[in-house]
Design a protein around this nucleic acid. Sequence first.
DNA 1: CAACAATATGCGCAATTGCTCATGAAAGTT
DNA 2: AACTTTCATGAGCAATTGCGCATATTGTTG
Lengths: 119, 119
Amino acid sequence: MAKREQVEGVSAGEISDEALDLIATRFRVLGEPNRLKLIRALEGGELSVSGLIEATGLTQANASRHLQTLTQSGILGRRRDGTSVIYHIADPGIFRLCELVCGSVQTLLARHASAFTSN
Amino acid sequence: MAKREQVEGVSAGEISDEALDLIATRFRVLGEPNRLKLIRALEGGELSVSGLIEATGLTQANASRHLQTLTQSGILGRRRDGTSVIYHIADPGIFRLCELVCGSVQTLLARHASAFTSN
DNA sequence: CAACAATATGCGCAATTGCTCATGAAAGTT
DNA sequence: AACTTTCATGAGCAATTGCGCATATTGTTG
């Protein structure tokens, strides 16, 4: 165990600590390149696991695990079709999220870049 | 080493893989409850490290590390004032991000809740 | 400069995570 | 029922991460 923080001085917050945990979990699920790859592959529409494997280059086992993570967190949805399982994006809000992060990252990169050129 | 994926079948993507890595990193930085706590504490305005410690209940060393992470990723900014260091939110886009995630989490929770009540 | 206050950091540890390999489980085909 | 295809999962491993403790660093004050 490596967690032992004071449980004091909380107060003043619109968001409870449990909510914070949920939000953090959400972010953490999205904080994995291969999972983002899977999401990106599903932007164009639903795909089977093998389709996703082909699109992303991931290992079958690895893809399956990430897909499980994404599905459990409500980001993706699944549907059976014969022997294959078809995944789709269940929470379109993801797109706006990624857009926002893209924006932030770009401005960040721009700032870093200008640190080389200007000054 | 535990990373060895095919580097094939990429194609078809508006977002490059490097960009995906950056975005993932961004998400991962936000995927930590204590870091979100720090951000939340800074919503009302800038605070020194000791102020943040008091507001969040984090250990000094721990807070310092998380603040470093947040600053390096461009989310927070720092400023010296005598012996203390004042942190502030440098990327306001964070707020919209959190709002969005809040929304997603809420609908997710609602769905889970309805799984108990309705059926 | 000495002493002090505020913050950062090296180090080691325990927990988590992402991966591969092998195997299990579900559905379709003959 | 045996076989195949498609996907999920248990086991083990290496890397990462979050933490506390102690210590270094930086700035202030006497």
